[in-house]
Design a binder for these strands. Structure first.
Lengths: 119, 119, 119, 119
DNA sequence: GTGGTCTAGACCACC
DNA sequence: GTGGTCTAGACCACA
């Protein structure tokens, strides 16, 4: 796995797991691989993986059983969507609209671009 | 001037000047205040201000005259808009659309939100 | 390491690394010593070293991995040569030929001098 | 007159006068325009013009008559050529050959480029 | 440990 | 006066 963008790697790992949960890769209560395995697989420092898991745990998306491993929480999918919606509406949207307005883009122009990018 | 967000101050200074150029505060070929004056006014170290100016110079938005000061370049406005458009389309848009799709928002829903926020 | 000439130290550091790359001291993807180590070794402030590295990074000669260090980029050698060739042809050559012509030197005279200096 | 390159303006003024002397624009013992006039004509700070004249005076190319003005010295042309030759051979040549060697250019290749640039 | 940013204050060349 | 460079030392986020 390559971490090419400038955001902190642990944030990218978080997103990666959220995406997988949204896409149904993990069931509720399912055990996910050990920090060590994930760190190896992702070619990442174990501390970095741990940091990501901690944050997922704080948001109620994972839970931890000492000596056993991390598990996908009940309602993890809802929690993920809720978290992302909150971030999106509170942080991305205002900034996005501000820039959009400043650069003179209209909603319909962006819709055009959207369609182009998703063809 | 307060720098509340987490981004580097010099980046915020860059944006500040870009915004001023967009809003027509500076004319082409106009001399902007000296590094020292701006540093004092913004309550920032001169080095931090210089760093911002260097980056604006590299992007062709300012130019420098030895021993005299910094000036707004010809076509500074175009350069600024071009730069911002590029950033917006390359970095914000894809990320935005991706999240939007993932969370199941439609363009029209967002347009609603946009209008609400701008009432 | 001594920095005797009048050019900025950070520029001299840049040239120093370019020279080392040309001379094959660093392989592609190899990690170079940390900013702090280099600063100590060159008897220079870390900020000065960082400045040089930033410029090398902008030219695609180094790249950076968060929290890990600086690495020699793929094709760093090509990038260095390209950069230097560009500088040489755009800046040194025209000035050189102009003076040469003005002083009435011919290419072959200079070739003589060249050979003398390299005996 | 535009000073576009990065060298100090006063150095560029010096070169400008040397060029004019080489090209025969000034005769020996001829009075050149006043510092003030030259500063106005070149759109330059008078101090900058004075600095150039001082350096030309130190090299025996101009001489000054208090309250009258600056004059072209006897043998100014020889002095100019001597000065330029010295600079060229001592400073430009070694640096030029070093870069040339490093970038793998040969004398004949450069001769080609020379001819192209002077067509 | 790594690099990134910032401050304070110095000195320089240049206009 | 202007900007440019450099140092010393601090604090931060990240791995």
């Amino acid at each position: 796995m390559k971490f090419t963008d400038n955001r902190p790697i642990y944030k990218q790992i978080i997103d990666h797991f959220c995406d997988q949960i949204i896409n149904g890769k993990w069931s509720e209560e399912e055990r996910i691989p050990s920090v060590r395995d994930i760190a190896v697989k992702m070619e990442v420092n174990p501390n970095t993986a741990i940091r990501a898991f901690h944050e997922l745990q704080e948001n109620g998306i994972l839970y931890n059983q000492r000596g056993v491993g991390y598990f996908v929480a009940e309602n993890a999918l809802d929690k993920v969507l809720e978290l992302k919606r909150k971030e999106f509406i509170d942080q991305e949207l205002p900034c996005f609209f501000r820039t959009m307005k400043q650069l003179g883009f209209t909603c319909s122009e962006l819709e055009e671009l959207y369609k182009k990018q998703h063809e």
